[in-house]
Amino acid sequence: MTEQRTDKTGAPVSIALDQDRAISAYTVSVDGGTLAGRAEFVDPPQAADERVFFHTEVAEEFGGRGLAGLLVREALTDSIRRNLTVVPVCPLFARHLKEHGDEYEAEGGKFRRPRPTDLALVKETVENAGDA
């Protein structure tokens, strides 16, 4: 999955799904492939129809271009396509869904509040990725 978009400056960007690393993410690249940011997630093994988003970051030099918002929106759109329930541990995802949750659900999206088991899974995933 790779989607072409434009940022707030009108420059082309690419958003892709990267599941080849220890921690999966939607990535945003600029300027012909320069990685600018990631929206990291984990798919709980006990719930194949859920995706827990836990960290979104855009490199400082690419700030102000709306890249984090593009990442969040594309990740949520892809979650609808894949019929996944989003679990927003990441504050950026949580804020977006608090503000636009009704619209997201109207488009076919599903989300729920994080549970302690989600937080434990994120912690374990991050720790294991550090060991890899």
Rank of each mutant, 00 (worst) to 15 (best):
V13F: 00
T85C: 05
R95Q: 10
G101Q: 04
V89K: 11
T125G: 03
T117L: 13
G130N: 12
G66S: 05
P44K: 04
F62W: 08
P88Q: 11
E74W: 14
S79D: 11
A129N: 05
A36C: 03
P45V: 12
R38C: 13
L97N: 13
A106P: 00
I23Q: 14
P45N: 06
L71W: 06
L67H: 05
Y104C: 03
Y104D: 03
A120H: 04
V52G: 02
E99C: 10
Q4T: 01
L97W: 07
E103M: 14
G101C: 09
G64M: 07
H100T: 06
R5C: 00
K110N: 06
A39E: 02
S14P: 02
H55P: 15
D118L: 12
A132R: 04
L67R: 12
G37M: 04
P91M: 11
V52N: 04
G109L: 01
G63Q: 07
A36F: 04
I15A: 02
G64T: 09
L70A: 14
V28F: 04
I15S: 03
A16L: 13
Y104V: 00
A39R: 01
Q19V: 13
E50W: 01
L97I: 13
E99N: 15
D49Q: 08
G69F: 13
F62D: 03
G108Y: 09
D49T: 11
Y26L: 09
E60P: 10
E60K: 11
T125N: 10
F111Y: 15
G101R: 11
E99P: 14
N83K: 15
G66P: 02
E107P: 01
G33W: 10
S24M: 08
P114H: 07
F54D: 08
P114G: 14
R81T: 02
Q46G: 13
E105D: 02
A59H: 07
P12G: 00
Y26M: 07
L67F: 07
C90V: 02
